[in-house]
Computed example of a mutant assay.
Amino acid sequence: MYSGSYVFPRVERVVFGRDAADVVTEEAIRGGSERVFVLVPELLQRADVVQRIAEALGARHAGTWSGITAHTPREDVVAATAAARAAGADLLVTLGGGSIIDAGKVVQTCLANDVVDVSQLDALRKLPGDPMTSVRAGMKPPKVRTIAVPTTLAGAEFTQYAGVTNAQIKLKEVFTHPLQTPKAVVLDPHATVHTPDWLWLSTGIRALDHAVEDICSIDAQPFSEGSAMQAIRLLSRALPATFKDRSGLEARLDAQIGCWLSLIGSQTGVNKGASHAIGHALGGTGGVPHGYTSCVLMPHVLRFNEPAVARRQALISEAFGQAGANAADLVAALIEGLGLPRTLRDVGITTDDQIEAITDASMQDPWIKTNPRPMDRAQVRAILEAAR
């Protein structure tokens, strides 16, 4: 029997299938914003979609910043905060993947809390062991909000929490507040055409991982379960379609909508499991891109969890359109068919020392404790060895 409550996120609207430049400008006007500051990855700095947004905003465009690198380092966030503050930003636009969108979330919090140095982030990060949606005591709420225009399928635009890498300790730390959630999300498939295929497809597997671990969660909810099922249906069809024809905008939008639906549970705090927990460590400590972490880990975590959630995994197979098949095998076949990495060796993790460090970092992630099958350090290490 289900038991729980669904808390609606602070997203005011999701606009899909429309031109991002038009929607961003409409949202800026609707909110009375006069100083719109745009965050983009360096890869997209000269992309036509960035230029169109700047032109459509006209005098409202306060500047564009492209200094955020992979995994959102602390130093990059503080530098972006200084640039946004100097520009007098009253609205942020984040155009890019998870690293850019997460950066925008934490820039909001840094602006509200007068952060000028990386050391000040220690007082704002979520404490280890606290739930992912647990706001740090004393944190001032963001006042400057964000519009997100995602170019990948990582899904950061639909959640309130953000990962920022502390390079000194090689650990990804979490910053969370309900108002870090973008107030508007724009799903424009045209904005994704510059995204490299490996990044598009691997983050699509990341979105699939969101849906899969929602269905198997210890606190699954009926609303998120239904959304996750539809997310799997869309992603399992749309990702192979975009692999075969990267110019197909309808399939790209289907994948974007699948990503959106995969995050319904995350928006209200439905806990994930070991694929996400170990994935955070593989990314923050091992330096592996977000999407690749799910490609490498998800099939192995599904196999580990099967004894505890076999009935839930049957729903995953049903959503794939192959009722009765093994869910881990279906996921593994999809990843292989997209030409994505499937082992730790494929993503540059080759030594025992690396695996030890990733194991240690995994044990600090709160979602290790919420994996549907309880696990200890030895079992985390065993999953990493299986993925080797």
Rank of each mutant, 00 (worst) to 15 (best):
V309G: 10
A83Q: 03
D209C: 14
R30V: 00
K369G: 04
I169Q: 06
R10N: 07
V288S: 04
L121N: 05
P299V: 08
I68L: 12
S294Y: 01
G348R: 06
A79W: 02
A274I: 15
S362Y: 07
G155M: 05
T81D: 03
A84I: 10
A154C: 09
F16E: 12
I169V: 15
G226P: 00
L249D: 03
I349W: 04
G17L: 10
I218M: 14
E42F: 13
G104L: 08
R85A: 14
T146N: 11
G88Y: 15
A89D: 04
D365C: 02
T64Q: 11
L297G: 06
P222Q: 13
A281S: 15
G32D: 11
V50K: 06
I53W: 15
F158T: 08
D353F: 10
A79Q: 12
S99H: 09
G279T: 13
H276M: 10
A162N: 08
P222I: 11
R252M: 08
L127K: 12
P131V: 06
Q51C: 09
G63F: 09
K170N: 11
L330P: 01
A332M: 04
P73V: 11
R342C: 13
N166K: 02
I68M: 05
P141W: 12
E75N: 12
L334D: 02
T152W: 04
D219S: 05
A62S: 12
N371M: 05
R206F: 04
G96R: 11
V186A: 09
Q120Y: 07
L261M: 09
L302G: 03
A251N: 06
W65L: 09
V49S: 12
V301H: 07
R312Y: 02
E250H: 12
P141A: 10
D376G: 15
D122N: 12
T359F: 00
Q180L: 10
L234V: 07
V212G: 15
G337Y: 05
T192H: 07
A54G: 11
K244H: 09
V7Q: 06
A87M: 10
P128A: 04
A207G: 14
A387V: 00
V36A: 03
L282R: 00
I53P: 05
L330G: 07
S247C: 03
A59V: 14
A21P: 00
P196F: 05
S266Y: 01
G31C: 04
G97L: 06
A123Q: 08
S227Q: 10
R136D: 05
R35S: 07
V78N: 08
P178H: 06
P178I: 08
F175W: 02
L187D: 14
A80R: 00
E213G: 14
L124V: 09
P240W: 10
L57S: 08
T109D: 02
S5D: 14
F37C: 03
